[in-house]
């Protein structure tokens, strides 16, 4: 290939790549490109195979290591099961009381919805832990919320087959409607890089303490209300209007193994447009 041809090829390739980039920047509603979905679908099985092999190996080593303590652990777990069975009985009686009282005041609550379980097959270290690849049996849709037992992990940004790329809440491009659990004061939790979050738009007059829990507010149409996001780690006066609040995420992203994908948040006005004006 001559130098002139190589230069033309460079120009063509760069234009193509800028087109791919600009399609993402033009609108946030367009979703991931076909190329990106194909890449995730191609890399997902590879990452899955590596994770599986590593899991088998570490599982074998772990089983060998823990074989001596299994009996003691078994005894402890049996005690724990007995305690939990007692706790379950107590809660069942509370539930019965609740149903009786709810019937009296005609209160109804949303039925619990099914979760999908996903295995984390790849955690991106190279770019400050901003995304993970997850293998989900039934597949996922863009926008679904991903959580683990500790709290919010992020949301699905690319879904391709049974693999999904999840943008972590610590990604600087991520924003979650959030509120302080104690005071119900609302703000926006953004990724601050380096595995931390910051809570923005909380007025300087608000009372915020170190250790306050922050949960999702359910106002952004993506994340359901009440999911743990993190705890307040540092509060400093920001500019005149708002406090500068740093959060420690509820989830330890270095320990992610199994995650749960919540069903898409229903947007009541999306299908039929805005409801009629109230009388």
């Amino acid at each position: 290939m001559s130098g002139r041809q190589a230069r033309w090829l460079l120009v063509v390739l760069l234009i193509g790549e800028f087109v791919v980039l600009s399609r993402q920047l033009a609108t946030t509603e367009s979703g991931p490109s076909l190329l990106e979905r194909m890449t995730v679908r191609a890399l997902g099985p590879l990452a899955h195979a590596v994770t599986g092999a590593e899991g088998q190996l570490s599982g074998f080593v772990e089983r060998r290591r823990r074989s001596r303590t299994l009996r003691e652990e078994n005894r402890r777990l049996q005690q724990r099961v007995a305690e939990m069975e007692r706790e379950l009985l107590r809660r069942q009686s509370v539930e019965l009381d609740f149903q009786r009282l709810a019937a009296a005041v005609r209160y109804s609550r949303e039925a619990s919805r099914d979760l999908q379980v996903g295995d984390v097959v790849y955690l991106d270290h190279a770019s400050a832990r901003r995304s993970i690849l997850v293998a989900i049996g039934g597949g996922a849709e863009v926008g679904q919320t991903v959580v683990d037992a500790s709290g919010v992990v992020g949301r699905v940004v690319v879904a391709s087959g049974r693999y999904a790329k999840v943008q972590l809440v610590t990604d600087p491009a991520s924003a979650v409607g959030a509120m302080l659990e104690r005071s119900r004061r609302q703000g926006v939790a953004r990724g601050a890089g380096a595995g931390t979050l910051r809570l923005e738009y909380v007025p300087s007059t608000a009372e915020v303490r170190v250790g306050d829990r922050v949960v999702s507010a359910g106002i952004d149409g993506i994340y359901p209300r009440g999911l743990p996001l993190g705890t307040v780690e540092e509060v400093t006066p920001g500019n005149d209007l708002f406090l500068r609040i740093r959060l420690r995420p509820a989830v330890d992203f270095g320990l992610l193994d199994t995650v749960y994908v919540l069903p898409p948040v229903e947007r009541p006005f999306e299908e039929g447009g805005a409801p009629d004006a109230l009388p």
Binding site: F18, V40, L43, S127, S131, Q167, L168, D171
Partner: peptide
């Protein structure tokens, strides 16, 4: 880009 987060490309 497929493995990492952020902008694809």
């Amino acid at each position: 880009d497929g493995l990492a987060g952020g902008l694809y490309g």
